[in-house]
C-alpha cells in the first residue's frame, strides 16, 4: 500500500501537470483568438485537421498513420545501422586507446557536422531510403560511439583483472565484463541517438523525394498555407519522439534494475 502522504503528493503533481496542460491550451486559444494573422489556427481546428488526417488522409490520400509509420521505419532502420556500427566501433576504440588516438582527428571534427549539413551531399550520393538511413545514421552514430567509448573507459580495472585471474581471455572479458559494464552508457547513447535521428528525419524528408513522411506532410501543408495540418504534423512528431524516449527509458529501467533499485 502507498502511504497517504505519498498518494497526496502524487495527486498534487498530477493536478499541477494537468493544470499546466490546460493553461497551455488556454494560452494557445487566446493567441489564436487575438492574433490578426489567419495563420494561427486554434486548438479546435487543429483537432479537426488531426481527425481528417487520420481518417481521410492528406491531399495525396496518405493518412497521418501512414506518414508516421514511414518516418518511423526510416528512423528505425537508420537507428539499427547506427547502433550496429556505433557500439562495436565504440567498444573497439574504447579498448584500444592507440587506435582511438589515431582516429580522433577524423572523428572529432566530423561529429560537429550536423546531419542537416550532410543533406546536399547525400542527395548527390545516395538514393531514396539509403539517403534517409545515412542521415539518421549520422545522427545516431556519434552519440552512440562516444557514449560507448565512455562506458568502456569507465569499466573498473579491478573487474577486468578479476576476470583475468579466473582465466578469462580477451573475448570473454569484453563479452562478460566490459560490455555489460558499459551497457548503461551505451543505452544512454542509443536514447540520445534515437532522439537526434528522429529530429533529423523531419528535416531530411522536407528536402524532397517520396511524398510520405511527417516532414513531407508539414512541408506540403506549409506550401498550401494550411497551418492547422502543419501543427498536426508537429504534434505527431513530438508525441512519437516522446513515446520512443519513454520506451527506451522503460527498457533501461528493466535492464538496469541493479543500478536504480533502492537498498532493500
Amino acid at each position: 500500500m502507498i502511504p497517504i502522504k505519498k498518494q497526496y503528493r502524487r495527486l498534487r503533481s498530477l493536478l499541477f501537470a494537468l493544470s499546466s496542460v490546460i493553461m497551455f491550451f488556454i494560452f494557445w486559444e487566446l493567441i489564436a483568438l487575438y492574433s490578426p494573422s489567419p495563420y494561427v489556427p486554434d486548438p479546435y481546428s487543429v483537432l479537426k485537421a488531426f481527425i481528417t488526417m487520420l481518417t481521410v488522409g492528406d491531399i495525396d490520400g496518405y493518412t497521418l498513420t501512414w506518414h508516421a509509420l514511414v518516418s518511423l521505419e526510416r528512423v528505425l532502420l537508420g537507428f539499427i545501422v547506427g547502433a550496429a556500427t556505433g557500439v562495436p566501433i565504440g567498444m573497439l576504440l574504447g579498448i584500444k586507446p592507440t587506435l582511438k588516438g589515431a582516429v580522433t582527428p577524423i572523428i572529432e571534427p566530423l561529429r560537429f557536422i550536423p546531419p542537416i549539413a550532410w543533406i546536399p551531399l547525400s542527395i548527390v550520393l545516395l538514393i531514396g531510403l539509403w539517403r534517409y538511413i545515412f542521415l539518421i545514421w549520422i545522427g545516431v552514430f556519434f552519440p552512440v560511439l562516444l557514449d560507448t567509448i565512455a562506458g568502456v573507459k569507465r569499466t573498473s580495472i579491478t573487474l577486468i583483472q578479476m576476470a583475468k585471474t579466473f582465466g578469462a581471455d580477451n573475448k570473454k572479458i569484453i563479452a562478460r565484463v566490459i560490455f555489460p559494464s558499459s551497457l548503461p552508457e551505451i543505452m544512454n547513447g542509443l536514447r540520445v541517438g534515437l532522439g537526434v535521428g528522429w529530429m533529423c528525419i523531419v528535416a531530411a524528408e522536407m528536402i524532397g523525394g517520396e511524398p510520405v513522411g511527417l516532414g513531407r506532410l508539414i512541408l506540403k501543408y506549409a506550401n498550401l498555407l494550411q497551418i492547422d495540418v502543419v501543427i498536426v504534423g508537429m504534434i505527431t512528431i513530438g508525441l512519437i519522439g516522446l513515446t520512443l524516449n519513454y520506451f527506451i527509458l522503460l527498457l533501461e529501467k528493466r535492464l538496469f534494475k541493479w543500478r536504480v533499485e533502492i537498498r532493500a
Binding site: 573498473s156 579491478t158 573487474l159 583483472q161 559494464s181 551497457l183 541493479w258 543500478r259
Partner: peptide
C-alpha cells in the same frame, strides 16, 4: 584472488 577494491559485478 580477492582484491582490496570491490570486485563484484554490479549487474549480477
Amino acid at each position: 584472488v580477492i582484491f582490496q577494491e570491490d570486485s563484484l559485478l554490479p549487474w549480477r
